[in-house]
Design a protein around this nucleic acid. Structure first.
Lengths: 224, 224, 224, 224
DNA sequence: CATGAATGAGCTTTCATTCAT
DNA sequence: CATGAATGAAAGCTCATTCAT
């Protein structure tokens, strides 16, 4: 009932093997194994949730024995953390690419463009996103999400610095980056997970306004 | 090993006591018991985290037997949920009070005032906040946090509606409330939990700017 | 959700009370209470089975507190035993009546008549019968069923003795009664509980044949 | 406290061992483990009864950890059922062998012969028989006992069919088999468990008479 | 290095029974 | 005598982790 997928690559190719410039085959095998386990972990995490994701199930999904799993990961949470990290990296990379691609454009275009892409990125694996959001705090005490937030925050700070001329002098770049990155991240995630009754266009327009208006001189209080 | 209930209501009120038609002592006892269990649950949750918060531990912390706990709560998660709900209610009530108290004031004053108080409220039980944030998604699939968000969201919508004259016509009140409430909530929580290197005043000023500027007419793109 | 049926008989009737020749009202109350508990026990036993029949549930069904139940029965099994005993007594009495009523008739008529009535008696509370059959062995190690078997066995022996002239001399009345009573009892119970694909008439005819033919001289083996 | 498996297979078979293509040692180990658990279950069941037969106790008696038990059985009742089934199979096989061995003989000889052997079979593990009889209804709703009854019933029907010439035409083979098999089974079990004051010879003679006389033409009622 | 059987601490939950009120 | 809150032993069962093979 649980196919064991036993080592398929047994049929050796004696001669040519030595020739191939196999760089550290050991490490390659290991890397592949790790990847397979992370794949399995992601699969199981999505299907069964954190509590249902037992190491036995992950090992089984990876086609290895539970004992072997522990050769690559010290414990269950390490696997889950790896899944989360890989996901974060993927999303971060994608967002960074998009930010860089839009670097030359005006903020009015670049911001909704980027967030739209972020919505797509997060929506691709909704259930994984849910699992990540639910488990991230317990596992990494924010460390991993920070990876995303820090990198993107860095980008944001850079972008701001480059445009510093058109930014009011009272803006603290660090604080602004911290705030906007988190706000955008959180709102986007909740939009994807909670599906509020707000059309996508409206959401994009509003979040863009939130970001761009932030950089305008604050209005003086008119009365009171 | 099984400490009997500690007599609490010792502070006597000599004269009037006999006269007061103290109704439903049964219910009082029961209420007190529930409160004690929720107290214990909170304590254990903070100290050991969700997974370490076994029913046995909670019962012991409450000074009752594991069996008694189940006379008041149907299962472990019910206890944890009660802890979270109580916390949410406390914070929500406090914020609502503050919002109402500032209703007449200008937004430039009311917004930082309110958020400052929210910071205080959340900071009072940092570790509990952490536990709540970590466990809420698994237990209530957002339902409880939504209790906060919805109530405060309602308030925000009301406030917006009352000032509708000074709000740009292109603002969708529902969408705006959804967004701003979540943004403020999340940023405040992260500020308390992550303690970023941003002075409190700066944070308050910036988040106020984020909120207030949102309601200004969007700037036309100047170039590109 | 669980109506407590609190003491209704509080409104006293001062004068007349003393006059009524109430024989040991204490004992009457007690007897009534026992009966109520046994009723409740039977109800719960039928609905939830032995394992699901907790003392709390029985007490609740009887409209009393679990503590009170223990004033009338020393433990759970005592209640269940009482239920079983009452059921056995009822069936036994009914069968005995029928046997006596048919005493003058020929066995060819009396036997199916009696068994038919037994079928009716057992079929009236099929689910109770099932519960009794399943639980009797564990609780009474046969003692209670024996009450039935012994009484009816006694009857059978008497009947046999009275007809001893027409019974072969090689019949041991005790052994025959033991055997036939048990055979009839068991077959009837299984017929009611298992509902085999045998018409009732056929069953009655066959079991009658089993009983009556038993009393004929055994046939000599003809060959071998 | 956690006795490791005791090396069993010590008796070596020096020469041939290496040669024999002993297939699936895995399965052998597993089978042996299952057998050991069933043994332990039987032991515990006899000693402590169903309710006292906790999985922990069974595991301990089997010399394994509670967790291991669940690698072989999904739950407690599965173990108990296995014990019952093994017992039933053993008795059934034995009886079937005996019936077949006596197939050619006259019923007057074969019937007591077979029942005598059944008495022996059941008497060998009296306490187990008691446990089985007490627990069978709750666990299998008769299914397992039916296994016995059906198999033997089948045999009986076959035997009847083969001798159909000497059986009165008014006999319904199915009904007769249903009835006689159950009657014999039940009487034998009760005889073993209750030890009534009936000598074994008498019991055998009487039950034989019960069975054989059943197949004679019913007597016409003489009077009434 | 892979395996997977074995581990066993620990969990949640139930329920017959008691006893202070 | 009634109450019912409280008890607490004990149950069935899971699963992250280990280790002999």
């Amino acid at each position: 009932m649980t196919p064991k997928r036993q080592a398929a690559k047994s049929a050796a190719a004696p001669r040519k093997t030595a020739a191939t410039p196999r760089k550290t085959p050991q490490q390659d095998r290991s890397r592949a194994m790790v990847a397979r386990i992370v794949d399995a972990g992601q699969e199981v995490l999505i299907r069964y949730g954190y509590d249902g994701a037992s190491t036995n199930r992950i090992a089984e999904a990876a086609g290895i024995s539970p004992g072997s799993l522990y050769q690559y990961f010290p414990n269950k949470d390490a696997v889950v953390t790896a899944v989360i990290e890989r996901y974060n990296t993927a999303v971060t990379d994608r967002v960074r690419d998009r930010v860089l691609a839009n670097f030359a454009r005006s903020p009015e275009v670049a911001v909704p463009e980027t967030i739209s892409d972020l919505l797509d990125a997060l929506g691709t694996h909704r259930e994984l996103l849910r699992a990540v959001v639910e488990q991230t705090p317990r596992l990494t005490s924010g460390a991993t999400v920070l990876a995303f937030e820090q990198q993107i925050g860095e980008l944001a700070r850079t972008a701001l610095t480059m445009r510093r001329r058109s930014v009011p002098s009272d803006v603290d770049f660090d604080a602004a980056a911290w705030m906007l990155v988190r706000a955008v991240e959180h709102l986007t995630i909740r939009y994807v997970l909670d599906s509020p009754p707000i059309p996508r266009d409206r959401f994009l327009a509003d979040i863009t306004r939130l970001v761009l208006n932030y950089f305008r001189e604050p209005l003086r209080a008119e009365y009171e």
